[in-house]
Write a protein that binds this DNA or RNA. Structure first.
Length: 374
DNA sequence: CCGAATGAAAT
DNA sequence: ATTTCATTCGG
């Protein structure tokens, strides 16, 4: 178990990220960002006893206090043997079987600011954490679907982390950076200078209420809530206060309430009103019907009511599955991915990196001073 | 040369 | 929308 799990077992990811090594939905013909080499990709980076870094990678060792990086470490302590068997979890990392995918011959010329050869920056620790928070599936769409709010939640969790809790991600970032450097030794981050400041648009969607909610969600996650329990807690959270319609997660959003709301599907009759009832700030005039949780519900079409008031919890009807008109669920899950657009190549799995850290953090490394003396 | 400002990383 | 880092730029 990851030591991170001591406090936040819920963040101990078990589900593969779409970018995980092993992801095989598409192949990517552009120069690979990260190595897909057959060999375990990380073992040789930083540990003593490897051909490349006989004394360990100083870049790496210098940044972290591994047992062996202590200058006072006893001389002659065994050097890590990279030829020894590595953990299965790491050895299992292999190049996915190449799935042939042929791009359509006539690809519409996309105006892409970044060419296909663009090399992305390595992610920093927070970005890795945030990515993992998303790919872990711990924050379901029902809890929060807005990436900006997920960012706020992620930041709140991040700030609540101790250094020890952040460490796996910092290590992972270091590893990613090293691998990036190894693959692109000449890469140079060249941010473009913008002549004018980007217009900071006033975003009403992200009011104080929404930020507060994001923080509360963070607290719930830090408290160990996840899955259905988290969803329920968040539902209670939302039930305690009238929230902006935009922040009702789409799958919890009410079915369209106003008959005047145009159906996004031409000719498609709207389902009857279910779920939370929109009103315009006059709760006492609203007749609250029974709440029927929808397993799949379309998000609120535009325009949406301003405020929603959830009914009391005791009016919930459990285990109800809404029958939706054909096509509904798809409408709001976003457009299907265009297969002609190459996916970002897989990045090293954070899980593997953290496992690697778990493996090496207690492994003695020859102190650099000793290595230099040899 | 040093602090401020800013882009870019994933979603 | 977030944090961190690499980079540039102004003084």
């Amino acid at each position: 178990m990851s030591f991170l799990a001591q406090r936040t077992p819920h963040l101990n990811v078990s589900r593969p990220s779409p970018y995980d090594i092993g992801h095989e939905q598409y192949t990517y013909n552009a120069p690979n960002y990260y190595s897909r080499a057959q060999e375990p990709f990380a073992l040789e980076w930083n540990l003593a006893g490897t051909p490349e870094f006989p004394g360990g990678n100083p870049d790496f060792a210098a940044r972290f206090e591994f047992p062996g990086s202590n200058p006072n470490f006893p001389d002659g302590y065994p050097v890590y043997d990279s030829s020894a068997s590595s953990p299965e979890s790491i050895q299992s990392v292999e190049t996915p079987p190449s799935t042939s995918y042929e791009a359509p011959p006539e690809r519409p010329k996309r105006v892409s600011r970044r060419g296909p050869d663009h090399i992305p920056r390595p992610r920093n620790a927070f970005m890795i954490f945030r990515s993992e928070l998303c790919t872990s599936g711990k924050i379901s769409k029902r809890v929060e679907g807005d990436n900006r709010h997920i960012s706020i939640t992620a930041a709140a969790i991040w700030k609540a982390f101790t250094e020890e809790e952040k460490k796996p991600y910092q290590i992972a970032a270091e590893l990613e950076k090293l691998e990036h450097k190894r693959l692109y030794p000449n890469y140079r981050f060249t941010p473009t200078v913008r002549a004018t400041k980007p217009v900071k648009r006033k975003v009403n969607r992200n009011g104080a209420k929404d930020i507060e909610r994001s923080h509360q969600v963070a607290q719930l996650i830090l408290a160990g809530k996840e899955g259905h329990e988290l969803e329920e807690a968040v539902r209670d959270l939302d039930a305690g206060v009238a929230v902006a319609a935009d922040f009702i997660p789409s799958e919890l959003a009410p079915f369209p309430a106003a008959p005047s709301t145009p159906s996004p599907l031409h000719g498609m009759p709207m389902p009857e009103i279910r779920g939370w009832v929109p009103h315009n700030g006059v709760p006492e005039t609203v007749d609250v019907p029974t709440f029927i949780p929808c397993q799949v519900a379309p998000p609120v079409p535009s325009p949406v009511p301003n405020v929603l008031v959830p009914p009391p919890r005791d009016q919930y009807v459990p285990n109800y599955s809404a029958t939706l008109p054909p096509g509904w669920p798809h409408l709001y899950t976003g457009k299907p991915r265009d297969p002609s657009i190459p996916r970002r190549p897989p990045t090293p799995s954070t899980h593997v990196l953290i496992e690697l850290y778990e493996d090496i953090k207690d492994r003695p490394m020859r102190p650099m001073a000793t290595v230099a003396a040899i």
